[in-house]
Amino acid sequence: MDGPGRFVGYRVTLPQVYRTLGKLVERGLVEFEVEAREGKPDAKVDRLTVDGRQTLLDWAHSPYEPAPRPMNPDFMMRFLLAGALGRELAVEVLRTELDYRREQVRTPTRIDELSGALAPIDDIDSGWAAQVMRAAHEQGRASTAAYIGWLEVTLADFENRPHA
């Protein structure tokens, strides 16, 4: 997870991985075997069970519901895992995410109303706080615009790519 996957947006530690694998084993979705390796510690190899495979397929084919927060790591996991199962799934997830984000930016944000609603605190200059909030809001809008651009380009690429 510290290698090429670090840009995917999901940071996990090995203890989290092992805890999750243990839970999946308990639920009968994953099984493992220990492979002896000469001159090295034995390796534990985890594999999906038949039920685990079906659960993954059911999830991959279930409707994708975007989260309100743009660039949510759950999108990337759905895109990576469901999308790896086929072009149609990848395109469907991309299209759903893109439609949601386009609608999201169509809805005007009244940042002045939001900053005006800040509860006054003696040490806070409300004018300055409003400037900081506007700057943060603009950073979010710019990031979302770039994200929408990536979604558009990737969707077009996937839709126009010849089937393998």
Rank of each mutant, 00 (worst) to 15 (best):
A67K: 13
Y100P: 00
P120F: 03
V30G: 02
R134M: 03
V34N: 04
K23R: 12
L94C: 07
R87H: 11
E88K: 14
I148N: 02
D122S: 02
T55Q: 10
G28L: 07
P162N: 08
T20K: 08
G83E: 07
D112I: 00
Y18Q: 12
E159K: 06
A136M: 06
E38Y: 09
F158E: 14
L85D: 14
V25L: 00
E88L: 08
A117E: 09
Y147V: 06
R87K: 15
M71D: 06
V8H: 13
V17W: 10
L151W: 02
A135Y: 05
Y147F: 15
Y147K: 04
N72F: 02
D112C: 00
H163A: 14
E88I: 05
L114G: 01
V17S: 07
T20W: 03
L29Q: 08
V93W: 06
R19G: 13
A136C: 01
Y10I: 08
T109M: 13
W128V: 11
A36R: 12
I148V: 01
R11M: 04
G149H: 07
L21C: 08
A43L: 15
V17K: 04
R47P: 09
R53K: 14
V34K: 02
P15T: 12
R69N: 06
I121H: 04
H137D: 11
L155H: 04
P70G: 05
A119Y: 07
P41K: 15
R19D: 13
R78F: 09
R69H: 03
R134T: 01
Y64T: 09
H137Q: 04
A67R: 14
I121E: 11
I111C: 06
R95H: 06
A129F: 02
G22F: 05
E35H: 09
E33V: 12
D123M: 02
D42L: 03
N72E: 11
L21T: 02
T109N: 05
E92Q: 10
E159I: 03
Q131A: 09
F7T: 15
M133V: 09
E35L: 15
L89N: 08
D42G: 00
Q104I: 01
G83Y: 11
L80C: 09
R69L: 08
R11F: 05
A36I: 05
L94Q: 09
Q16R: 04
R6V: 15
L94P: 11
V17H: 11
A90Y: 05
F75W: 05
S62R: 10
G140S: 08
Y100A: 09
R37W: 06
G52H: 07
M133C: 00
A135F: 00
I148G: 00
R19S: 14
S115P: 07
F75K: 01
G5P: 01
P108V: 03
L57R: 15
Q54F: 01
Q54C: 00
D112L: 12
P66Y: 06
E31G: 13
A90R: 15
L29M: 10
A117K: 06
E33Y: 10
A36T: 13
R101P: 08
G9I: 02
D99R: 09
R110C: 06
S143M: 09
F32E: 10
I148E: 00
R102G: 02
K40R: 15
Y10F: 01
T109A: 10
R47D: 07
L81I: 15
Y100L: 02
G116L: 11
Q54T: 03
V132R: 12
G39H: 11
R101A: 09
V45K: 10
G83T: 11
A156R: 12
